Simulated assay, not measured.
Amino acid sequence: MQPFLNTRAAFWTAGAVVALALWTSACPTMTYPLYQADWHVSTTTVTWIFAAYPVALIPVLIVFSDLSDHIGRRSAMLLGLLAELAGVLLFAFADGVPWLLAGRAFMGLGVGLSLSPASVAMVEFSAPGKEGRAGSVGTAVSSSGIALAMLVGGALTQYAPFPLHLNFFVLAAVIAVVVCFVAGMPHHTANETSTWWRMRAIIIPRGNRGFSPPARSRSRRPSSSAPSCCRSVRRSPTSWRVRPTPWSPARCCRCSRRSSRSAPCWPGA
C-alpha cells in the first residue's frame, strides 16, 4: 500500500500503536475474576495465564530489538499489531484455558514487536527541533492506553452483555482500524538500514563482565585525641557516625588524672 499519511499524522499513529500496546497488555485484567467464577479456574491457573505474557514478551525484546532497523518501522509495527489482534481474538472466542494461554502469549509477542518501533517512530516523525517532545507524548499515550484498558474494559465487563467476550471484540476492532492507518505510514525512515536482519549473540560489554562485590559503608573513625568516654554518637543526614566531642583535660574527670573537677563527663550521669 502506498503511504498516504503525512509526518504529523504518522507521529500520532505511532502514538496510537504505543497506547494499543499498553491497552492490549492490560485488557484481560478485568476478566480474570470472571474466569475463576464461571469456569472454576484456580488461582494457580490464572497465574500461569498471567505469566504467559512476560514469557513471550522478554525473549522478543531481547532477540528482535533491532528488527525494525532492517525491515522498517511500519513493517515491524504491522507484525506486532497482527500478533496483538490474534491474541485478542483468541480471548474473544476462548472457551477454555488453552485458548487463554495462547492468546496471552500472542499478546506478549505483539507488544514486544510493536512497542519499541512505535516509540522510535514517534521520535523520527517529530517536527524538526521538537524531537524531545516525543518522550513526554509517549508517556502520556502509554498512560492513556492503561486507562482505556481499565475504564473501557471495566465498563464493558460490568455493564455490557457478554462480559467475557465483548471487551476483546471492541479492542480487536480498534486494532484493526489502527492497522489500516499504520499501513499508510512511510515505509522507511532515515535511521533504518538496508541490510538483512540476522540473529545476533547477546554481548556484555567488557567493562561489565567482572564481579563487583557490594560496597561496604565505612563510618568515620573518631579522633584518637579524645578519650572513649568523651566520644558521642551524632546523627548525620545519611547514617549514624561516631564523632568526638570537644575535650580538654580540665573538663573530664574520669579519663584524665590532670583534672581536679568532679563533674561527670555526660550530663545527668
Results as ranks from 00 to 15, higher is better:
residue 1 M to A: 14
residue 1 M to N: 12
residue 10 A to Q: 05
residue 11 F to P: 06
residue 15 G to M: 07
residue 16 A to F: 14
residue 17 V to P: 00
residue 20 L to I: 15
residue 20 L to G: 02
residue 23 W to G: 02
residue 26 A to K: 06
residue 27 C to D: 05
residue 27 C to W: 08
residue 27 C to A: 14
residue 28 P to I: 09
residue 31 T to R: 13
residue 33 P to E: 00
residue 35 Y to G: 03
residue 35 Y to D: 01
residue 37 A to S: 09
residue 37 A to K: 15
residue 39 W to M: 08
residue 40 H to R: 14
residue 43 T to V: 09
residue 47 T to M: 06
residue 48 W to F: 11
residue 52 A to D: 00
residue 56 A to W: 01
residue 57 L to I: 07
residue 57 L to V: 07
residue 65 S to V: 12
residue 66 D to R: 01
residue 66 D to H: 05
residue 68 S to K: 02
residue 69 D to Y: 04
residue 71 I to A: 06
residue 75 S to Y: 03
residue 77 M to F: 01
residue 82 L to I: 13
residue 84 E to T: 07
residue 85 L to C: 08
residue 86 A to R: 13
residue 90 L to K: 09
residue 91 F to V: 02
residue 92 A to F: 05
residue 95 D to T: 11
residue 96 G to Y: 05
residue 96 G to D: 06
residue 97 V to M: 07
residue 99 W to C: 08
residue 99 W to V: 01
residue 101 L to V: 10
residue 105 A to C: 02
residue 110 G to T: 00
residue 111 V to W: 00
residue 114 S to E: 06
residue 115 L to Q: 13
residue 120 V to A: 15
residue 130 K to S: 04
residue 133 R to W: 14
residue 133 R to E: 08
residue 135 G to D: 01
residue 135 G to S: 13
residue 136 S to W: 10
residue 136 S to I: 09
residue 137 V to E: 00
residue 140 A to F: 15
residue 144 S to M: 13
residue 146 I to N: 10
residue 147 A to R: 00
residue 149 A to N: 04
residue 149 A to K: 01
residue 150 M to F: 10
residue 153 G to H: 07
residue 154 G to H: 02
residue 155 A to D: 13
residue 159 Y to V: 13
residue 161 P to W: 10
residue 164 L to R: 05
residue 166 L to F: 03
residue 167 N to W: 00
residue 168 F to E: 00
residue 170 V to E: 06
residue 173 A to C: 11
residue 174 V to Q: 06
residue 177 V to C: 14
residue 178 V to D: 10
residue 179 V to M: 13
residue 181 F to M: 15
residue 184 G to D: 15
residue 187 H to R: 13
residue 188 H to I: 06
residue 194 S to E: 15
residue 194 S to F: 02
residue 195 T to E: 15
residue 195 T to W: 01
residue 197 W to N: 11
residue 199 M to T: 01
residue 199 M to Y: 03
residue 199 M to S: 02
residue 201 A to G: 13
residue 206 R to G: 12
residue 208 N to Q: 14
residue 209 R to P: 11
residue 210 G to F: 04
residue 216 R to H: 12
residue 216 R to F: 09
residue 217 S to K: 09
residue 219 S to A: 10
residue 220 R to T: 14
residue 222 P to V: 00
residue 226 A to I: 10
residue 228 S to F: 14
residue 229 C to T: 08
residue 230 C to K: 01
residue 230 C to I: 00
residue 231 R to L: 11
residue 232 S to Y: 01
residue 233 V to D: 08
residue 234 R to Q: 14
residue 236 S to H: 13
residue 237 P to S: 08
residue 239 S to A: 14
residue 245 T to N: 13
residue 253 C to Q: 12
residue 254 R to D: 15
residue 254 R to V: 15
residue 255 C to D: 15
residue 255 C to P: 01
residue 256 S to I: 02
residue 258 R to K: 10
residue 264 P to L: 08
residue 265 C to S: 07
residue 269 A to M: 08
residue 269 A to I: 04
